[in-house]
Structures are given as structure tokens and as C-alpha cells.
């Protein structure tokens, strides 16, 4: 589904990604781990099409289609979803209206009519129950004054609404207490399916106890330096990132 080949990306001439190769198939969950500054969030934002980054070399394909010339919204329409590490506060736009706009814009891109209001309400009710979201919460301004946990839960709610092919979860565990983490992880697990791929980006192994990956990759200095099964995450947790750094140098 997702195929990244020799990806190099920079921001203002600073090289951040230095040759990433990654292949993710439908139904799989991949974890990308790594120390701070290794390029994890950059990778996520480059896949989603953030204009701040310049792709210098290499390619990203989704189902065989090159993403290079696609705007972020077009990538979203082809099924990419990024759960933000720091979801942006948008005062004046309620969660519900934001979701309606997003869904109808995606439908428009596919040549479909707006979703009928009753269908939309039903969908919102169904998906908010999945994440244990209170109705009152949906009429609040998007992310404004939300707690860390509420923001992340809201991200996964959006994912559930948009039903992407490929979901990238950027540090979804950061800022969450254990109860919030459990709710969010349960939500993600309910969204696992045969035709959906999930990439979990995390610094700590903690989240991976709840969202168990099929593959784990370690990112260091803009490259994937080690890949393995879920046991790699446990090993990393025990030995720390210095182990990888030393190994890379050696």
C-alpha cells in the first residue's frame, strides 16, 4: 500500500530525512521508534504533504500512485490520515461542523453529493460512542481548551469518521495518562482492519503494549537503522536508544 523509496527531505536546507525505505501493506501495523530529533515527525508530515518540507530525492507511493505533486487535501482524499502530535486549536469551528466539512469535501472530490444530514448525525453518534466521546464535546470549538487526552481522542475520532486507508499516528501517546491511553488505543484497535494500514510513531514502547505492531522500525539520524518484529520494541525499551546509536556508529 505505502511504498517509500530512498526518501530525502529537508527544511530550509537542513537535511532531516536521509534515505528512508519503507513498505507497508494493507492490514499491517508498523511502529516507527526513535530518539528525539531522529526525523519521526518529519516523516509523518512529509507523507501527509506538509509544504514546509522539501523532498530532495526519492519517492512516496500510495497504491502505486506517486504522491509528489499532490496537495495535502488530495492525499487525504486518496486515503491518508495523519493524527497530529500537536492538534491545532481552531476557535469558532465546532468539532461537528469541522467533520461535516471534511467529509463533504472528500465526497465532493470523489464526485459524490453531500452526505444527508441524518446519515451524518448517525455516523457521528456511532463513531463518538466508539471513542467514548460526550455529545457536548462535539459542539465545542475544535481543540480549543481541550486537555491533552481530549485532543488525542478527538484525532482518533476524526480517523474513525474519515476511514482512511493509511493512518499515521504521530506520538499519539504523548501527554496521555494511562486511562486516556487505554481509551485511545482501544479506539485504534477497533479501527484495525484487513484493508487498512496503520503506522504508529512513538518514542516509548508503552503505547505498543496496547497497539501491538506487526513490525517495528528504528529511525536514527534520518534513516531506518533497524527493523524487526514486536520484540524489537521490548529490546529497545530495555537497552535504550544508545544501544542503537552505538551499533550504528560501529
Amino acid at each position: 500500500m505505502l511504498r517509500i523509496k530512498d526518501l530525502h527531505a529537508s527544511v530550509e536546507d537542513k537535511k532531516i530525512l536521509k534515505g528512508i525505505n519503507l513498505e507497508v501493506n494493507a492490514g499491517e501495523v508498523h511502529a516507527i521508534m526513535g530518539p528525539n530529533g531522529s526525523g519521526k515527525s518529519t516523516l509523518a508530515e512529509v507523507i501527509a504533504g506538509h509544504e514546509e518540507y522539501e523532498v530532495k530525492k526519492g519517492s512516496i507511493e500510495l497504491d502505486g500512485e506517486d504522491l509528489e505533486d499532490m496537495a495535502p487535501e488530495e492525499r487525504a482524499h486518496s486515503g491518508i490520515f495523519l493524527s497530529f502530535q500537536y492538534p491545532v486549536e481552531i476557535p469558532g469551528v465546532s468539532v461537528t461542523n469541522f467533520m461535516k466539512t471534511a467529509i463533504n469535501e472528500s465526497r465532493k472530490a470523489r464526485g459524490l453529493e453531500d452526505m444527508p444530514a441524518n446519515e451524518m448525525l448517525k455516523l457521528i453518534r456511532e463513531k463518538s460512542e466508539l471513542l467514548d466521546i460526550d455529545r457536548k464535546f462535539l459542539s465545542r470549538s475544535l481543540n480549543e481548551g481541550f486537555s491533552g487526552g481530549e485532543k488525542k481522542r478527538n484525532e482518533i475520532f476524526q480517523m474513525a469518521m474519515l476511514e482512511p486507508k493509511l493512518a499515521i499516528l504521530d506520538e499519539t501517546d504523548s501527554g496521555l495518562d494511562i486511562d486516556a491511553l487505554r481509551i485511545v488505543a482501544n479506539g485504534v484497535n477497533k479501527l484495525r482492519s484487513e484493508d487498512r494500514a496503520i503506522v504508529v510513531i512513538t518514542h516509548y514502547q508503552r503505547l505498543l503494549d496496547y497497539i501491538v505492531p506487526d513490525y517495528v522500525h528504528v529511525l536514527h539520524d534520518g534513516k531506518i537503522v533497524k527493523s524487526g518484529g514486536k520484540e524489537l520494541a521490548v529490546e529497545l525499551e530495555a537497552k535504550g536508544y544508545d544501544w542503537i546509536k552505538q551499533e550504528t556508529v560501529a
Binding site: 495535502p72 487525504a76 481552531i90 469541522f98 466539512t101 471534511a102 467529509i103
Partner: peptide
């Protein structure tokens, strides 16, 4: 950043700018 956030949810840039100004 707010524009990118809205775009990443499938809202085209023009509509996203409009929505932000509207809000």
C-alpha cells in the same frame, strides 16, 4: 499550521482559508 491541519483532513486550501477567516 492551522491551514495544514484542515487540508490534511481533506479540506482544500481555498475552503480551509475561508473557514479559518470565517471562524
Amino acid at each position: 499550521e492551522a491551514l495544514f491541519y484542515l487540508q490534511s483532513r481533506g479540506i482544500p486550501k481555498k475552503e480551509a482559508s475561508g473557514l479559518l477567516m470565517y471562524a
